[in-house]
Design a protein around this nucleic acid. Structure first.
Lengths: 205, 205
DNA sequence: GACGGCCAACCTACTGGTTAGCAGGCTGGC
DNA sequence: GCCAGCCTGCTAACCAGTAGGTTGGCCGTC
């Protein structure tokens, strides 16, 4: 909402990248203190408990994701292009170690040991992303730009799962190109299922 | 290799389910001590350090996975059936909270904070699984049972990513049915791409 | 008597969190 | 104009609890 102080902002950004690195139990207040150049107690001043901090990180991610999806909707009238732009965005993130995973996807893997407050935020992100992908795919099908092999919701769930799994594979292989390969395949299959089996030639085709 | 003592075995099983719950930093020796009914020091007797313990868990998982894939090869001559059996196996695991994730997939998400010894084991599992899926899909394509939209390796990478992502979605939604939905779609698309768009009628079709 | 399995007691480092308090900026009242 | 009062941002010092790990020794058995 209101713009928070730059220190709280820095703490959030730092916590975010630490979570992306190793999840909820993979970092401590001391880690943040070291990076931001502030004492542990000062972090507690901005975020009383670790739960508050992580929840704030996730909430911000959810907001930014919503804004990002809205921006994609605005800038890419063609649903196929919208999916490609979404993929490009994440491909760029995956290159940067501090950004190489979706905060919510990473936290989702640790849900059994996560505080409930964080779980609900993570869940809401999955719902929002699935909803958006469903709408994009639905629109693409209506316009004849995308070829679905089942209903849009199911197609969207497969898409989302594959994107998250691709982040995992990139990390496991230690090779960010793995992400791009998988996601490109995924989109090609949706966009050019019948006429262009392996590669898209030109956007207007 | 040689069958270890039942205590070491219990420790391994316990550590495994704890890792599945929250990853490398999501459990402690005290947690295991509580569940197995043994003192912390005794765990160190069997596994000198946490790295040794987790590496052993992953190594066992890799071995069991190899055995499982070999068994699927033996019991299911039809590659499409083999993929379905693989999916069924994991669908069953996902129902059980102590088994609801692939140990290697979960650890892969935390690679940046993992000791190198564990990382190499995790990586080798991803390679082995990708190799096996590639061989199954290749064989299915040769036999005309599967319809590929790209080369078998790429198809296998998409498949593996989607399966891992489906585990994540099931966890995020708190609904193990989400896993089955996604993976069923995924296989249907491979098996019955052209003649049965949404649902497989009978195995012999 | 050597060895495998186990444990009590202990260790150091670090965890998330609290407390009391300081410096500086902004306010209102005189 | 000035000062009291308050708020924000920050910190040193401290806390109890827990992390992974070590030591020395007990007990059975082969």
């Amino acid at each position: 909402m209101a713009n928070v102080s730059s220190t709280a902002d820095e703490i959030l950004r730092c916590a975010r990248s630490l979570i992306i690195g190793g999840g909820y139990n993979g970092f401590s207040y001391a880690d943040i203190s070291g990076v931001v150049g502030i004492r542990k107690a000062s972090i507690h001043h901005h975020f009383p408990s670790k739960v508050d901090l992580v929840r704030a990180v996730v909430q911000r991610h959810v907001e930014e994701a919503a804004a990002g999806m809205a921006a994609l909707d605005r800038h890419h009238p063609d649903p196929a292009d919208r999916l490609r732009a979404y993929a490009r965005y994440w491909a760029e993130c995956v290159r940067d170690p501090a950004n190489a995973f979706c905060v919510c996807a990473l936290l989702a893997s640790q849900i059994p040991v996560l505080p409930e407050e964080v779980v609900v935020e993570v869940r809401s992100h999955f719902r929002a992303l699935s909803d958006w992908l469903t709408s994009v795919i639905q629109e693409g099908a209506k316009q004849g730009r995308l070829n679905l092999s089942c209903d849009a919701r199911a197609e969207a769930e497969v898409f989302m799962a594959a994107v998250h799994g691709a982040m995992l594979s990139a990390r496991a292989y230690g090779d960010d190109a793995a992400f791009r390969t998988i996601v490109t395949r995924l989109i090609d299959r949706l966009v050019a299922d019948h006429d262009e089996p392996t590669k898209r030639a030109a956007p207007g085709a």
